[in-house]
Design a protein around this nucleic acid. Structure first.
Lengths: 227, 227
DNA sequence: ATCAAAAACTAATAAGTGTTAGTTTTGATG
DNA sequence: CATCAAAACTAACACTTATTAGTTTTTGAT
């Protein structure tokens, strides 16, 4: 009789959750059956129900655990004393490291949350909206403080978060990139884009582009800077 | 007897593909049944097979149509005479406008491609890899040319593409943002992050951050610039 | 060794899946 | 109106789904 062997620091439930995460990520939540999970563990499907409540409950556990981690970090950053740009950067770094260390769970809570059953679905969406608002509020204060350039903070939040959530597909794509290199490059790209830059400093560089290509005419990025 | 009413400029097959796209996006490919699609159109499920080959074929059509559009644009940009930063910007703009105008199809080809049946799955993955490589090559030339700051081009490509693919969740989130505003803000964030900036120009701003928070010590973004 | 609880098993259920076969209805043409 | 193909229908198939019920095996403590 096959059995579930609990890992060093995890219950049998954790073993199931972990194998399920792997499969949810590889095949998607709906396309993964209880039999798939059971097979991967080496056990019959009904046996799983001695440890878990339902397939939906596995998804719920994954999504809400990740949500708690992100919310916990956000609270810590909100209470810290840093410049708003630094707060933003440290949140970005947290997201990246979560994506690297827990990418299966984070991926699932990013991509499969829509299959949560009510009332968890509504709850999750509310928390998600709330998280983004609080992050946008930090950006807004950074803008008011002249640390961050005048962008629409909601668009910036969305851009940043979705940029980071794409790391997963990179993980999977064979060339595993060094984590530190990945983090530094992404932070650079995202934070440089946010930084407030007095107009004079960037004028020189812009000029070059205008002269050579008519850059300013139909595709300037500085034209609508105030909007 | 209910029937499929073809739209102004589309066959009955197009009607099916379009309704299917809506549902694939809202519920996911696997969670959407042929009966769901048929119900949404107001017809019985087997009737669909007078117009389409299979459920998988609907997905295949969606994914490869979008792939063709992106590849077509990329070729055009590659052949154009612009600075590499401008090429990058115009590709970014194309992605954003595709996301706004065809967000259901683009979303599906971004998120549901893994459910493609072979041999289409392998084909799609190859095209995807290829597209990213060509985009990374443009960035690399921009770096060599001192138009783009020295980042890892693969990471930059990934960051940019996934940032843009996140627009969808914004569309859905109620507050539909003005398309032009969205585009300008995203382009600004992403292109500013790429731009080559001689070290001197940004020094002043950096100084402020260092003095106030010890920013440079454990979370500098300029330290590892070479890596 | 005994006994109870935990956890595995088999069997079964009711519902849902994509799809095919065969039949009827529809709509345009002569 | 008659005809014929296009396109709808109903019925059915062969599977798969998550989950429950009931039974047997395993495990660990006495």
């Amino acid at each position: 009789m096959a059995k579930i062997i609990p890992g060093k620091n995890g219950s049998k439930k954790d073993v199931i959750t972990q194998k399920a995460s792997e499969l949810f990520m590889k095949k998607g939540f709906t396309a993964t059956s209880m039999r798939d999970i059971a097979d991967a563990i080496g056990v019959e499907a009904p046996s799983l129900y001695n440890h878990i409540e339902s397939k939906n409950a596995i998804l719920k556990d994954i999504c809400f655990r990740i949500a708690r981690l992100f919310t916990g970090n956000l609270r810590k950053v909100e209470l810290s004393h840093q410049l708003y740009l630094s707060k933003t950067e440290s949140i970005i770094r947290f997201h990246i490291s979560m994506m690297i260390e827990e990418y299966e769970s984070v991926y699932i809570s990013d991509h499969e949350w829509k299959h949560l059953p009510e009332p968890f679905l509504s709850d999750f969406k509310t928390r998600r909206r709330n998280y983004r608002s609080r992050l946008a509020a930090i950006l807004q204060k950074g803008i008011d403080n002249n640390e961050i350039d005048a962008v629409n903070p909601y668009i910036a939040v969305l851009t940043i978060l979705s940029a980071i959530s794409g790391i997963e597909s990179w993980q999977r794509s064979g060339k595993k990139i060094d984590a530190k290199l990945l983090e530094e490059n992404m932070v650079k790209l995202l934070v440089e884009g946010l930084k407030y830059r007095p107009a004079k400093n960037s004028a020189k560089n812009h000029k070059v582009l205008e002269e050579q290509t008519g850059f300013h005419k139909n595709m300037s990025i500085s034209k609508n800077r105030k909007s």
